[in-house]
Simulated scan of single mutants.
Amino acid sequence: MTPTTSAALAVARWRKSSHSGDQGACVEMAVLPETVAVRDSKDPSGPALLFPPAAWAAFAEAPPRR
């Protein structure tokens, strides 16, 4: 995996879940080369978690726990 720079995160196309509504309490994600970044939508200049695409896909496709 190539390192992801803060410059790459700054220009990334961030998306919020369509399920988040206007509550403001959610995360947003950006797909970068070889990385999926996730951050707090209320703190866009704060830290981001970086995941390999396969790990993010497994998380996103997992059934909800009840």
Rank of each mutant, 00 (worst) to 15 (best):
A10H: 08
A58K: 13
V38M: 03
P44A: 11
G24F: 10
A60Q: 07
P63A: 12
A25H: 13
P3K: 01
V27H: 04
V11Y: 10
T5W: 07
P33I: 00
W14K: 10
A62Q: 11
E34H: 03
R65K: 09
E34G: 03
A7I: 01
L9Y: 02
K42T: 10
V36W: 00
A62I: 15
S45E: 09
S6R: 15
T5K: 07
M29E: 11
R13F: 10
R39F: 07
S20D: 11
R65Y: 08
V36A: 00
M1Q: 07
K16M: 09
A8P: 01
P52Q: 04
V11T: 13
T2C: 04
R39D: 04
P33A: 07
R66K: 10
C26L: 05
R13V: 15
P44T: 12
F59W: 08
S20L: 09
D22C: 14
R66P: 10
R66Q: 07
V11W: 08
G46Q: 13
E61I: 11
P63S: 14
P52R: 10
P47D: 13
A57H: 06
G21T: 06
T4A: 00
V38I: 06
Q23R: 08
A12I: 05
S20I: 15
S6C: 06
K42E: 09
W56M: 13
S41Q: 06
Q23Y: 09
F59V: 06
A58Q: 13
P53Q: 03
L50C: 03
D22G: 15
K16H: 14
P63W: 10
M29D: 06
P44C: 13
A30N: 08
A54R: 15
E28A: 04
P3C: 01
P3Y: 01
W14Q: 12
A58M: 10
A8N: 01
A48L: 03
P47R: 10
L32W: 03
D40F: 02
T4S: 00
A58Y: 10
V31M: 12
S45I: 10
V31T: 08
M1S: 14
S17T: 07
A57L: 05
L49W: 01
K16D: 14
A60N: 12
C26F: 05
A55C: 05
